[in-house]
Amino acid sequence: MAPAISLHSVIALAGRFPVLSGVDLEIETGSICVVLGANGAGKTSLLRLLAGLMSPSSGAATVLGLDLPEQAAQLRRQVGMLGHDVGLWDDLLPEENLRFALRAARLDPQAAPGALSRVHIEGRIARTPLGQLSEGQRRRVGLAWLYARRPHLWLLDEPHAGLDARTRLVVNELAEEAARGGATVVASSHEPELSVPMADMVVTMAGGAVVDVARGGRRREGGAADVA
């Protein structure tokens, strides 16, 4: 099977600053890849590049069989990304946000309530405008937004940050469920104790480049991944 993600010597610039400086990386379809690294290592830039939101300035980048930057527009429709800021609309209710996203993605808006209850957004919280929810609740809505869209590539930027213990487990469950369904998951993390156990592959970045790749596989057998 062709890899879901294939990057060769990819360099990406933010202005004149190289945020990715020669990234080589292959990630299998249907796998979960956790990206570790200090602040400024290039984790978020890597996710934005994989989403088609940032163009490589040199090198070869193919994501879900689509070449970047030429086919970025087609790629974006197949990608779901949960960033530090969930990027939804504060004056809309959680369900209105999801319905809008589903309609825009040509999916059934009836899936919205189910996706919200999957991340425990129900009752009074579901009837509160997003801007009035706590940071953790907002991230849960962002997660539901991702789950409802069922993208082929999940990009999670620090997915456990600001979440309670119960929802942290839900993040891992959803990522594993997506991978079992054939989607590829790439998650950046500062919390390896939470993210590495779900990983098939752990990538370490520093200075905008991949400095270590550890491939595991025990996740599928139900144990902790042997990727450390």
């Binding site: 939101l53 527009a73 429709r77 969930v86 990027g87 609309w89 996203a101 825009a104």
Partner: peptide, 10 residues
């Protein structure tokens, strides 16, 4: 983030 969300919706 909101602009990115709109772009990812296609």
């Amino acid at each position: 983030a909101t602009k990115d969300a709109s772009r990812l919706l296609g």
